[in-house]
Simulated assay, not measured.
Amino acid sequence: MARTSGDDMSAGATTPAARAEALIRRYFEACNAADRAGLIDCFTPDAVHYFPPGLPSAPWRSAEAIADGWVWCVKTLGSRWTIEKVLAGADGHEAVIEWTHWKTSVNEVLRGDEWYIFNDDITRIIEIRAYYASPVNKADRVNSLHGFDYAGRGYHLDPPTPDLD
């Protein structure tokens, strides 16, 4: 099941794969909104988010640590995220996505993948393992796969606009 960002995923998703995808999309919405309570609600209390080497304090262990990390990124780096592709297993217990992380305050873009593991009833994320498309090179404004046609494949080329109250 692959969708591009912006496709509607009803709250009443009925298949396990649809519930997994809906939970991932809810998580990204909470990230973009810097919604700490919403982020915590997406995870089991003992959830773990793993990252490639180089991120201080990684891995992030606990729903609260994950929420605090992403809220900090939004407030400090101007972070915004888009989901490019989603593939969820038929049983809904695992999924993989491609994403783009827009760091608008520091003029950087990072692309990568994440592997998700969900609890039994697919209401919370237990674990995320992040993989970057390329090693982070601070000299490059956009970190992505060399020679990959992001525009031609329909990937986002600009960050989403923040919702302003």
Rank of each mutant, 00 (worst) to 15 (best):
A67K: 06
W102F: 11
V86Q: 03
A37W: 01
A34D: 09
I122S: 07
I117G: 07
E64W: 00
E84Y: 00
I128Q: 15
T44S: 15
K75R: 15
V86N: 04
D91M: 08
W99L: 04
D41T: 07
A139N: 13
S105C: 08
R124H: 15
T123F: 00
R124V: 05
F28L: 10
R80Y: 01
A63G: 08
F118R: 07
E114H: 02
D35C: 09
A65H: 05
P56F: 03
F28V: 14
L110N: 12
N32V: 06
I126F: 00
R129I: 08
D35G: 10
T76F: 07
H101L: 10
K85W: 02
A88V: 01
T100P: 07
S79F: 06
D35E: 08
I125R: 09
A33I: 02
Y116N: 07
E29F: 06
R36M: 02
V48R: 08
I40T: 11
F118E: 03
I66Y: 01
S105H: 14
P53D: 13
V96I: 14
T123H: 01
S62W: 00
L87R: 12
R61T: 14
R61F: 00
I117M: 06
W60I: 09
Y50Q: 05
V106C: 10
A95L: 03
L77W: 14
T123E: 00
A65D: 05
V106T: 13
G54F: 01
G112L: 02
D91S: 09
I122D: 03
D41F: 04
D35I: 05
E64A: 15
